[in-house]
Design a protein around this nucleic acid. Structure first.
Lengths: 252, 252
DNA sequence: TTTAGATCCGAACGGCGTTCGTGTCAAGTA
DNA sequence: TACTTGACACGAACGCCGTTCGGATCTAAA
């Protein structure tokens, strides 16, 4: 008893659509629009991520979005962990990579870091997946390759470059998470900007009310500490790292 | 109908222990040994953390460990998130703090960073809680105060110190997570060291097998990239950051 | 002795990741 | 054309999870 699947080419001769015999009902209300594939699953998962954050990306939710049950996903993906890594690598494909110019390697490394930051933060808290993960996906490896290529072109020794790519990766992950964790806390319906303002205002108040005898330095720096210039903080850390790497270039 | 509680002083005159009337049984087999407190809950949670990692710290598990049900915890703790933050702050209490010596501020800042790392990594993946969290607990603030005091004693401008404490915190969190995520993956019964060896060997193999035309730089650096000298990598990143901070000291 | 409030906690709600076993169906084989 | 095979789909269930509810119990003030 074949259920009609209009989107797929029928195997035999195009069977005429018969009316449902009395007492029988089609086994499923509507067959899935498209056959399940790894790509469709990852794509759907990223749609949920962008709309509602990483926490909302559950096997059940993704399956529901595809009009099926959670068990169906396991034929294409080994589990939630693999799905997350596939999502990350697909996001990493959006990162624009530079053509190395040895004369500008430091600025190029910074530009690449900014590009990673832009892509990560445009996909909610996807960076959480990256934290503490050895990159194995092709696009993540492309990014690592690009970073290494820039440093090597600039004359950074192998050993230094090997450690630096790690430090830089940690910095990028941590920064992206830092920037998105609070955003993720904002209630669904609310204006995130107003929520933010309110949220940080409370912290400023809290820090100001701290006992001056126990925290003499901190209480004198409330202004500097609660100044939420995210871009400035990122550039500060990035500059620290890149300058530090550059100091290891041999020929001076 | 009061059930006898031998561990606690009885309220009225010491009622004689009556035999259980037929058809009735004591409502609970054994009353909890100690009354529930915030401290006891946090303490128990950390015991579970140390033994089985952060993932095993669930409300149900902690309650079970205390001989009660999960609902009982909510009288002392607002929820899982708050419990996690209380755990982190209690762990932070173990961090030894320096007496600032302006002449040695850079080395002292490094020593403090090493101390944070030591304490964090001695409590499994507790650092995950810290990532993307504005510190508010007293002991976490002590650490921030100490870092700021060292930098200010060394002549680091307020604005720089404010950003640097953030960068350093991100680095410490990210490093601790990096170091414990794989450890957390090791199966419960297995020898972690052997598991590690095996695990990293697989990665080295994987990187070596990568196509040389797409990843020309990376494939030439497999040795440098898979060299798992965690301490060396930490010192490298730490040195980058501290040197960078020092470069902002005004009086030169 | 009464009462009010804190504390405790069994039961339940809705959601989670994953597995099992069965059902379906296209492609290959006879 | 009929049968077999193997990949895929997926309903149902298992054992977890965080949190809430409402009544029972206990403590200390009145």
């Amino acid at each position: 008893m074949a259920t009609a699947r209009p989107d797929r080419p029928a195997a035999g001769p195009p069977a005429r659509e018969l009316p449902t015999p009395p007492g029988r009902r089609p086994r499923r209300a509507a067959p899935p629009r498209r056959p399940l594939t790894r790509e469709a699953i990852v794509e759907t998962a990223i749609r949920v991520l962008d709309a509602e954050g990483l926490e909302a990306v559950t096997m059940r939710r993704v399956a529901q979005e595809l009009g099926t049950g959670p068990a169906s996903l396991y034929a294409h993906v080994s589990g939630k962990e693999e799905l997350r890594e596939l999502m990350l690598d697909r996001v990493a494909a959006e990162i624009g990579l530079p053509e190395p110019d040895p004369a500008r390697w430091q600025e190029q490394l910074k530009e690449l870091a900014r590009e990673v930051r832009r892509v990560y933060t445009s996909h909610r808290d996807i960076a959480m997946v990256s934290m503490g993960l050895i990159p194995t996906g092709p696009h993540l490896l492309d990014v690592a390759e690009a970073q290494l290529a820039l440093m090597r072109a600039g004359g950074v020794p192998k050993r230094i470059a090997g450690m630096a790519v790690d430090t830089l990766g940690m910095f990028l992950d941590a920064d992206a998470i830092e920037g998105t964790v609070y955003y993720a806390k904002a209630p669904a319906g609310e204006d995130p900007h107003a929520f933010f303002e309110e949220y940080f205002g409370q912290f400023k108040e809290y820090f100001s009310a701290l006992p001056k005898d126990r925290y003499p330095v901190l209480t004198e720096m409330v202004e500097e500490l609660t100044d939420a210039d995210d871009d400035g903080r990122f550039e500060f850390g990035l500059d620290l790292i890149v300058r530090g790497i550059a100091s290891y270039v041999e020929d001076e």
